[in-house]
Structure formats: C-alpha cells, structure tokens
C-alpha cells in the first residue's frame, strides 16, 4: 500500500489546478455509467478511478479524488475509502514504468527473488523506489495469475513471463527506448471502455 517515491515525480502544481477530464475521457465515463441501473452510478467508481489515474499523472492525488467524487456525485470519503483499498491505485506518484515483479509461491520457486535483486542492481534503486529520472519504479506484488509463466513481471497492462536476467535487460531497454508512460495508468481506456 505504501508507494514510496524518491522525490522525482512530484506532480506539477500547474497541472494540479487543471484536474478536469478531457472530453474523450468524460464521454467514456458517461458511457460507463450507463452500464448500471438508474441511481447505481457509484458502481462506476473503480473504472473511473482507473481513468482518473491514467489522465492525471499516474496517481490519485486528493484533488483528483475530489474531482472524481464530484463527477460521480458521491462523497469524497467514499472515493478515498475505495482508492485506498485496492492495490492498483497509487496514492503517491510513481515512475513512468512501474515494474511489478510477482513474488508469490510459483514465481518465488522459479527465481523471482533473483529477478528483483537483478533489477535493483541494474536500476540502482530498491523495491518501492523510483529512479532519479522518474523512469522506473520497482515494486513487488502478490500473485498476478501468471504462475505458468513464472517468474513474471507486469508493466502497464503487459505481462512479461518466463523471465531470465537477459530478458529483463531487453525489457528494461525497450521501455527506456519507448520512454513513455507504462504505469498501470497507460491502460488505454479510451479505445475500449
């Protein structure tokens, strides 16, 4: 639950003032709300928080949560309660690429600890920290349902399975080259939901 970050990704104050969904995102939100019966729009909270996280810097600031509450016409505390319950919502800023290494039984038995150690050494940060360029955050996570591809890591919506140290090199280099947002927030909601 604690997403500690080494400073670099502090959300820009000028951006903070502009917490309003894009027209496209707002359209998606409205569409999501129609999936539920009349008056049950609170059901949209989880998907809308994902969109908010994607839209507003990869994490949920208090201002973002306030905004989501106003969009869904619910109390801010209802948003905060939910946002703090689920592990995919970041309550603090994270790196552009959130490398989440599974550490539960199957992945552990196939060497996930070595993957984590290697990543720490390679990126020069510890689990829970973000590289000084704001590019990578290393996280350890609990079972992601990819035990057959153990050891694995997730970045954004991509599963990287059957990891070896060489594979980790390639993955990190590819992300570095792409250089774009690959946290949970880059889930490209607009095309799909």
């Amino acid at each position: 639950m604690s997403n500690q970050v080494s400073g670099a990704q502090a959300f820009d104050k000028t951006q903070r003032a502009k917490i309003v969904f894009s027209d496209e995102a707002l359209k998606t939100v409205q569409k999501i709300i129609t999936r539920y019966p009349e008056g049950k729009h609170k059901s949209a909270l989880l998907p809308v928080l994902h969109i908010a996280q994607a839209e507003f810097g990869g994490w949920l600031s208090p201002e973002t949560m306030d905004y989501v509450a106003s969009v869904l016409k619910i109390k801010p505390i209802e948003v905060f309660e939910v946002a703090s319950f689920y592990s995919m919502y970041n309550l603090k800023p994270v790196g552009k690429c959130n490398l989440e290494v599974c550490r539960t039984s199957s992945c552990w038995s196939r060497g996930s600890e070595d993957i984590v150690k290697y990543l720490e050494k390679k990126l020069g940060v510890k689990v829970g920290e973000t590289t000084s360029d704001g590019m990578f955050t290393i996280k350890t996570v609990e079972c992601l349902g990819s035990c057959g591809g153990a050891p694995m890591l997730q970045c954004g919506s991509s599963f990287h399975e059957n990891l070896t140290l060489e594979k980790v090199d390639t993955i990190v280099e590819n992300y570095r080259m792409e250089g774009k947002q690959k946290s949970y927030t880059d889930l490209d909601y607009k095309n799909t939901l």
């Binding site: 639950m1 208090p62 109390k75 801010p76 505390i77 905060f80 309660e81 703090s84 319950f85």
Partner: peptide, 20 residues
C-alpha cells in the same frame, strides 16, 4: 447527513480517518 469519515486502507493497515 454528510459523512466525511470512513475506513481507509485495508487489512491490519486499515484506519478510521476523515477525508484528508
């Protein structure tokens, strides 16, 4: 009539708090 306090986080890290 306007709840501003609730249960945050989960498991043994849960806490009662008010919104910010």
């Amino acid at each position: 009539d306007n709840r501003s306090q609730g249960m945050l986080f989960r498991g043994d890290a849960s806490e009662i708090s008010t919104y910010i």
